[in-house]
Write a protein that binds this DNA or RNA. Sequence first.
DNA 1: CCAAACGTCGTC
DNA 2: GACGACGTTTGG
Length: 137
Amino acid sequence: MPKPRAWPGPPPDDVYEFSMDAEEAKPLHLHRKPLEKTSPLSKYIETEHQQAGLFSLSPFDPSLDIAVDPQKKRRKKCGACTPCLRKENCGSCANCLNRKTGKQICKLRKCEQLKKRLNEWASSPVIAGSPDTDGAQ
DNA sequence: CCAAACGTCGTC
DNA sequence: GACGACGTTTGG
């Protein structure tokens, strides 16, 4: 078994079952922009800051977002944690030294949220700022 | 199209 | 359990 792995790709999802409404059935353009097209990083960060410190409840239902493909949707940096605030890479960590092969962001810039597993992150009721010294596990 | 970065699997 | 490597996704 050279490289069995799990699935080399997604299952037979050659077609989607969503209703092809005239409004959404627009031509697939030339690129693949599923959703969130007009979301500048700056705007995104601002939103995160607000949600992280000003709003306890999300303005939108996160369930709808993950309902699309929770296991395939890639998360983005929160932009509010210390690592995210870092603008330059350290250039000394393994990721920086092996960025070409490792293809990963500098360890010092790795978002606290992304460090957690998708399951843990999805289970977290709050957004960062909760180290929780209870050590539940 | 390319570079950067995330997600998952394999190995130590 | 942590780290490394590779594939894939995402943004410019």
